[in-house]
């Protein structure tokens, strides 16, 4: 069955299905119960599952993740919501030094199936700490898996896969893509959780991104097409691990790669992709791998986000530079 849904609704349905299928799955977070979350992603779930499975927690991020770890030790599969990207840092120790390392520390005696959902990224004109892209911290940390869906269909399926995973998953939900609708295959078989995917084929330059940047890349590809340039667009979907094979295969065809991301470029996921492609596909490359990123500054006041965030023009500028070699 196919339904036309927003990503927010699709994730909501994915959570509902996961909770119906496994009564060890529970949700924790600030304002996620009665209110349904500030983005309404958990709307209606407290009504269906009760306050013991949809926990309106005290306002304490470290407390949310720390108690989720304890619940996982008890056999639960907690799904935590961090209200906004910039609010994850009070939970940083519990994520980095505890959650990420627990599985290794336990040497096979205990799994930690904890999902941390984080609405992330810009384009919503919000105040400081509400528009950031912190994915590099998590992708850098062994023991975590990091996912970011770009479409409602992936939101629906990937949240269920994240919950089914026996490992901690950082699930980054692009706020800018919460409301646009798309077709969701409710019963269709999902793609593998960590698979990256060619979402538009092309021949001249490969462009790679994740989250909200995928729609931007598709827009750029459409504009480029009008100029006679053919872009192949790849949706990463998974930031840790990264599925490189489709990227390498695409670069083997196009010889050129542009990586786009909202996050600052220094020591970023895009940097890692550029380095890996340079290592693995050096003789296929006709030009240097180029990154289009947020600037290496704090996320600016919202009136400047249009300048800060990569847009179609900056992506096409990089495409032109790549083609210039």
């Amino acid at each position: 069955m196919t339904e036309n849904l927003s990503m927010a609704k699709a994730i909501n349905l994915g959570l509902q299905r996961a909770m119906r299928e496994d009564d060890r799955v529970l949700l924790m977070g600030e304002d996620i119960g009665t209110l349904g979350g500030v983005f309404r992603v958990t709307e209606g779930l407290k009504n269906e599952f009760g306050e013991n499975r949809v926990l309106d927690t005290p306002l304490a991020e470290s407390g949310i993740v720390g108690t989720a770890i304890g619940l996982a030790m008890r056999g639960y599969r907690p799904v935590c919501e961090i209200q906004f990207d910039g609010f994850v840092f009070p939970a940083f120790d519990q994520i980095m030094s505890q959650l990420a390392k627990q599985t290794s520390r336990h040497q096979g005696t205990q799994s930690f199936p904890v999902v941390i959902r984080i609405p992330y990224g810009g384009h919503i004109g919000a105040v400081e700490h509400h528009q950031e892209s912190p994915e590099a911290y998590f992708a850098h940390t062994a023991g975590l898996r990091v996912l970011s869906p770009a479409t409602p269909n992936d939101g629906y399926h990937m949240i269920q896969q994240a919950i089914q995973s026996n490992d901690p998953v950082i699930f980054l939900e692009p706020k800018a893509r919460y409301w646009p609708k798309g077709d969701v295959e409710l019963d269709g078989p999902p793609a593998p959780m960590h698979q990256s995917r060619v979402v538009r084929t092309g021949t001249d330059v490969t462009v790679v991104g994740h989250g909200a940047m995928v729609a931007m890349l598709l827009d750029a590809a459409e504009v480029a097409k009008g100029e006679g340039i053919s872009l192949e667009v790849i949706d990463l979907r998974s930031l840790s691990p990264v599925d490189y094979d489709p990227i390498i295969a695409s670069v083997a065809k196009t010889g050129r790669l542009v990586v786009a991301q909202e996050a600052p470029g220094n020591a970023s996921v895009g940097s890692e992709i550029a380095a890996t492609v340079a290592e693995r596909a050096f003789f296929h490359l006709e030009s240097p791998v180029l990154r289009v990123s947020g600037f290496d500054v704090p996320f600016p006041p919202a009136n400047l986000e249009g300048v800060y965030l990569p847009d179609v023009d900056r992506i096409l500028d990089a495409v032109d530079r790549a083609r210039g070699y």
């Binding site: 720390g66 989720a68 770890i69 304890g70 030790m73 056999g75 519990q94 505890q98």
Partner: peptide, 15 residues
Amino acid sequence: TQTLHAVGYAMGIAM
């Protein structure tokens, strides 16, 4: 850090 793990575990006992 273990105090939060212990509380989470205890919440699980109650649940």
